[in-house]
């Protein structure tokens, strides 16, 4: 915790305001690496596996995935890759042979990363310790085993390209949008998917009962009834920092990991930017959490 606070502090001074772009790529790479949660999938933290040498099982309704070894090992990792290979993987979802990646690698979000940020990430990855460990093959039902089918998925749902700031919005909003949509890939969990695994239209960030690891992922649009419309900006910031909700409850499940690994390590201005962005989203009424079985009482029972 101390280390992360220190990092946040260093980050705060490094990335405050306009100096952001002028910083050396190295430190920025590590900051982005944490914010983007790469280690959460690519390191098997549950079994104390070596860093970035391949992750624990990711259970989804469409099969079990294992994020591969992305250390600079020439045989088992990405040691032979060029920067262009890395750009193609994250920006276009293609491996060096031209085959498609599964969207369980959240490139549909990472494609929005800027060239500078991709370069910083790549430089950071290059500096990690190589690990000689083979990646585990995914465990998929037969009907999704062929990567060529993924071209259909991409045609339907995937628009490659870096994030373009909206000139009609201020800097904080744009930073928040970039952090939530590209770096933090919040929608990968918070947006429900259709039967083909694509994001459902009109339900952006509106929650799903079919999240990763059997999680129920709440609606984080500012709808007052079913989302976080009653949360104040400071309460969202607090949640992303410590996990505490306005009621004093604490985040659990995969979100606790996201907070530990990513959002608690952001600079305070970056957490605020995300909160500003969330509160600016169109509110979507979409109930995800189970309704408590409340006994009907008083007027309500008679519909008055």
């Amino acid at each position: 915790m101390n280390a992360s606070r220190l990092l946040a502090f260093v980050g705060a001074t490094l990335f405050a305001g306009s100096v952001f772009a002028a910083e050396p790529a190295m430190d920025r790479g590590e900051y982005l690496f944490r914010a983007a949660g790469c280690g959460g999938c690519h390191t098997d933290e549950k079994n104390k596996g070596p860093a970035l040498a391949g992750g624990a099982a990711i259970k989804t309704p469409r099969g079990t995935f294992y994020a591969p070894n992305i250390t600079p090992d020439p045989t088992y990792g990405v040691g032979r890759w060029s920067e262009a290979d890395f750009f193609r993987a994250t920006r276009e979802g293609l491996n060096p042979d031209g085959a498609h990646y599964y969207p369980s690698f959240p490139y549909a979000s990472y494609t929005r990363l800027t060239d500078d940020d991709l370069r910083a990430l790549w430089n950071y990855l290059r500096r990690q310790a190589p690990v000689t460990q083979a990646s585990r093959p995914h465990e998929l039902p037969w009907y999704v085993r062929s990567r060529s089918l993924l071209s259909t998925w991409k045609a339907l749902y995937f628009t490659p390209g870096a994030w373009q700031p909206r000139p009609d919005k201020d800097e904080t909003w744009n930073r928040g949008a970039y952090l939530a949509e590209a770096v933090g890939h919040c929608g990968e969990c918070h947006t429900p998917r259709d039967s083909l695994g694509g994001p459902r239209r009109g339900l952006h960030f509106a929650g799903t009962r079919e999240g990763p690891d059997d999680s129920v992922v709440p609606n984080i649009t500012p709808d007052k009834k079913t989302g976080i419309g009653r949360w104040r900006k400071s309460e969202i910031i607090e949640y992303l920092d410590s996990g505490m909700t306005p009621e004093g409850d604490f985040a659990g499940d995969v979100m606790a990991e996201v907070i530990d690994r990513s959002t608690s390590r952001l600079t305070p201005p970056d957490r605020e930017a995300i909160a500003v962005y969330l509160l600016s989203l169109p509110p979507v009424e979409h109930a995800v959490r189970k309704e408590k079985k409340k006994p009907a009482k008083g007027k309500d029972a008679f519909g008055f």
Binding site: M1, S215, S242, F250, A251, G252, A256, D260
Partner: peptide
């Protein structure tokens, strides 16, 4: 207080899940 908060979160991470 922060340390106490972290310990609440740590247990919820491992032992609590929204019912399906």
């Amino acid at each position: 207080f922060k340390e106490l908060s972290d310990s609440c979160k740590a247990c919820h991470k491992d032992f609590r899940k929204e019912e399906k």
